[in-house]
Design a protein around this nucleic acid. Structure first.
Length: 325
DNA sequence: ACCTTATTCTATCGGAT
DNA sequence: ATCCGGTAGAATAAGGT
């Protein structure tokens, strides 16, 4: 493919080109369109705007990768899975270095052992001099693991934290900030994303830094990495609550409908999604005469009665206006 | 780094079915 | 008599200056 790189300024400025030039996108000629400027580059691939033909997808997509995190589990698994091996790899190396100390103890060792030892030294040297950031990462991962286990956070969650931290290093967000604060913030964000949130106060108790730096680091991190801290969809809680409270399928469908309407009317912004789901369950139980008291729902969902009350009134309000039975 | 705002929780009480 | 709805005050988290 002989592509000629042409800047947009070389050509008549159509409206589209004017628009694209500001975003500094590169154009090439598309063989299909015979020299016309129809190719746009985005998300690491060049596509022909007219035919949707992908010309080159060899580049790295630097787009946000966490947006689909809570929505599509399959995607989540594959991404995290690939990156975990990177984490494990580091850990493996650090173990090898640890073994080296024992061998260098002065006792005479067999030539074969000496050979092994030499190999280890070589690797250690390469490892250490090659990338000074690696040591930083190693220490950070150790911290993440320590705090994660202290808080009872599951493995995938710690791995996500590791990935986040790696990104902060890659994007050079660290200078001027303590490593400890950043690792804690990464773990905090990861815990949120995995629906196993812990309060900042709890994190403070296991971290070696104060609450404020953690908070600052977290905000900085969320902003710079464009983390999608999108509130999880209330519908995700619905099935669990419905089965726990033995609500009929019919009622559950209605509850889903109510939640959808609520979302469309922006009732959910800033609210606890679990609270909304619990409220929806309460509503349908009442509508269907399947008697559930607020106290029962509150018990099963760990949402306070007060919250259920306010949410269910808000939901009913918009459902009365926009709900087409 | 400090202050403000919004949300949720506990505790409590009057009112309704 | 139990359940519901409202309120006050505290704790917490997120955003803004």
């Amino acid at each position: 493919m002989n592509e000629m790189l042409i800047t947009a300024t070389d050509h008549e400025a159509t409206e589209q080109q004017e628009n694209d030039r500001t975003t500094a996108q590169a154009y090439t000629t598309c063989p299909e369109c015979d020299g016309q400027i129809c190719v746009v580059e985005e998300h690491g691939e060049r596509t022909c705007r007219d035919r949707g033909l992908v010309l080159d997808d060899g580049e790295i997509d630097r787009g946000p990768e966490w947006r689909s995190f809570s929505e599509e589990e399959a995607d989540e698994r594959s991404r995290v899975g690939a990156l975990v091996t990177e984490l494990m790899h580091d850990k493996g190396l650090s173990t090898i270095i640890g073994w080296q100390d024992k061998d260098a103890h002065g006792n005479s060792v067999s030539p074969r052992k000496q050979e092994q030892l030499q190999r280890l030294r070589t690797w250690n040297e390469r490892f250490r001099t090659k990338n000074p950031q690696e040591r930083n990462l190693k220490q950070a991962f150790g911290e993440i693991d320590r705090m994660g286990s202290a808080l009872g956070l599951p493995g995938p969650c710690r791995e996500t934290a590791g990935v986040l931290y790696r990104r902060t290093v890659a994007e050079e967000l660290l200078p001027g900030r303590s490593i400890e604060a950043m690792t804690t913030a990464s773990l905090y964000a990861a815990a949120n994303q995995h629906d196993t949130p812990r309060t900042l106060a709890v994190f403070e108790s296991v971290s070696r830094v104060e609450k404020l730096p953690i908070q600052c680091a977290y905000r900085y991190l969320a902003q710079e990495l464009e983390l999608a801290i999108e509130t999880t969809d209330p519908v995700q809680y619905l099935r669990q609550y419905a089965s726990e409270l033995q609500v009929s399928d019919e009622a559950e469908r209605l509850a889903r409908n109510i939640l959808e309407i609520g979302k469309a009317q922006n009732v959910h912004s800033g609210k606890n999604p679990a609270g909304l789901a619990a409220a929806a369950v309460y509503i349908v139980a009442r509508l269907a005469n399947e008697r559930l008291t607020q106290a029962t729902v509150s018990d099963a969902t760990n949402i306070s009665k007060v919250t259920i009350r306010s949410r269910y009134q808000e939901l009913l309000a918009v459902y009365g206006e926009h709900g087409d039975r």
